[in-house]
Design a protein around this nucleic acid. Structure first.
Lengths: 334, 334
DNA sequence: CTGAAAGCGCTTACAG
DNA sequence: CTGAAAGCGCTTACAG
């Protein structure tokens, strides 16, 4: 073991690899006159030594990736991210993901641009993307994962199952017995958890959700608008609906308005998330609150820990959901 | 004139300044063993030659500054920014401004971090901030300026005055004669323009806005909620309200709901902006649309032009507003 | 495919 | 306050 006090230089790597500085330089610069074996070995060493180039580590920068459109939901997460990043002076970059480029090219670009870590929000990070980031030595933290994250993916979520229970208990306590669910993407893990928590609680209470009052589509407004229409146009509409997101709930509100169905007098609505939409709509929404800002903050702290090589206590953190009662729920009419 | 083919190096600057490379290096690194006169001269030359350091220009990066909370409004602008930045591969950083640090320190930090330009959205950029950026050689573009921008500040806005006229004409055409205005910050230039366009049109039509039906507070939801309450609690409430922003309009919607005032049957509401809030609220809002995405796109293109040293055709661009009719306006009851 | 050697851009301890 | 000189980290044309 040679002494290595400061940052790794080309010389550090060259010594460790038993090759010349010139060869290491070629690998770093992606030249092609290096044998595959040598290249692989040198790349490994570069990663192990956290080689950063002469610029040193620059300003720490976190790249936040949103797959979908920016929305009320993303704003909450971003506020938390910005807050947690501001104090240590970490810069925050916003992007829409890798677009058309290959996972490898994208990950390499992210590394080359000097990003300290990537935070992916509510996003289908494919295993391919995640692997590419690992190979490029860029830590990844996933917020509110759609797919149940694999074991080696670090993620921050909330207690979706408990949230489903909370919604059910609230509606039961108001006296509802005929309730419906409009959820997001059927495959999404968080959607499944919300639904199962809701479903099992109502079942135990002796008021199971009829199969034809369960809709899974997307987490977007349009799903609430059309799904709400389907439910409300039935001869026997539900007296309460649990929506898998605030956007769905707000779409449902509009479906109700169009039909002259009053909320909460004729229909109770519970949303999920507690974004600004929930506060700003009329009537303001009763929701299961997901602490999105706090999730953003935790994601930043975790990402920074990973970036500085610290080990983590846990690969998945779940923050508690809670009930926020506003004006969209009431006892059913009799 | 010596030949200068590629990027400026310390040697380029040293030659131009007639000092040694060592002295230039000291200036670049902020050492204090340089006389003020020499320092000033060298700094000038560094700017003139677009000195970037050995890293070259890195990845072009634009820093977008929002002073207030992220909201439906900022999302529209950001979508445009991200779209325009994606194609040329420009990175987008998000920040909340300089916080507690001095304007100079902040601007220097922005320059040192290698930002190509700053886009400030709907923000009170003080003259001090703007000057500091100029001195640090970082181009600035202001989107939807609150204060009427000075002559040397580059800005992108929309036709606020025309928007006010549009709102007035729409309500007049529906048959309204008693109309109110709830605007944002009274001093804000964009607020003034919207109000004056509205006011003058109604005046010409013989239906001037009574002074006690004009409220100026902030562009936020709470201003619409309280302002709407004041208006609707009058013995002689207006039959229509023009709101200076979507948030105000949505707050007004809630004030109406709480009082059992139906929109649009009992009250017509026109918003301003056309954010997602306008689409998602119930009833969906009739609005004067501000092309926020396009404004974000233009801001990026302008910023990039400035960063590459191109000159601009115009220091201020105004994009056209338009009327989007949804469900919050109708003829007044008789 | 590899590396010795020349050279570039930059920094800094030190002499004046 | 200034700069000559030593030296660092890196790149690259070229010889093997």
């Amino acid at each position: 073991m040679s002494s290595r006090p400061g940052r790794a230089t080309l010389a550090t790597i060259a010594e460790a690899a038993g090759v010349s500085i010139a060869t290491v330089s070629k690998v770093v610069n992606g030249r092609d006159d290096v044998s595959p074996g040598t290249r692989a070995m040198v790349e490994d060493l570069l990663r192990q030594h956290y080689y950063t180039g002469r610029g040193g580590s620059r300003l720490a920068t976190i790249e936040v990736v949103f797959a979908g459109p920016l929305a009320a939901y993303s704003n909450e997460v971003m506020e938390g991210v910005l807050q947690a990043a501001a104090e240590p002076g970490v810069a925050v970059m916003l992007s829409k993901g890798r677009g058309a480029s290959s996972a490898t090219a994208w990950a390499l670009g992210v590394a080359k641009a000097g990003r300290s870590a990537v935070i992916s929000v509510s996003n289908e990070m494919t295993v391919e993307d995640a692997t590419a980031l690992v190979r490029a030595n860029v830590p990844l933290v996933v917020v509110d994962p759609l797919t149940p994250a694999g074991n080696d993916i670090i993620s921050v979520g909330s207690t979706n199952y408990a949230g489903g229970i909370t919604a059910a208990e609230h509606l039961l306590s108001l006296g509802h017995t005929r309730m419906a669910y409009i959820g997001g993407e059927a495959e999404a893990g968080c959607n499944q958890a919300r639904w199962q928590g809701f479903r099992s609680t109502l079942e135990s209470a002796g008021h199971p959700v009829p199969e034809n009052l369960v809709l899974h589509e997307t987490f977007r407004y349009s799903a609430g608008l059309t799904g709400g229409g389907i439910l409300l146009d039935r001869p026997d509409p539900p007296t309460a609906v649990f929506a898998g997101s605030d956007e769905i709930a707000v779409g449902l509100l509009e479906a109700a308005r169009r039909r002259g169905v009053r909320v909460p007098e004729d229909l109770s609505v519970v949303g999920f998330d507690d974004t600004q939409l929930a506060e700003f709509c009329s009537p303001p929404l009763t929701v299961v609150r997901q602490p999105l800002r706090e999730m953003g903050r935790v994601a930043v702290r975790t990402a920074l820990q990973l970036a500085s090589g610290d080990s983590l206590d846990s690969h998945h953190v779940e923050l508690a959901t809670s009930l926020v009662v506003r004006a969209s729920t009431a006892a059913p009419r009799r």
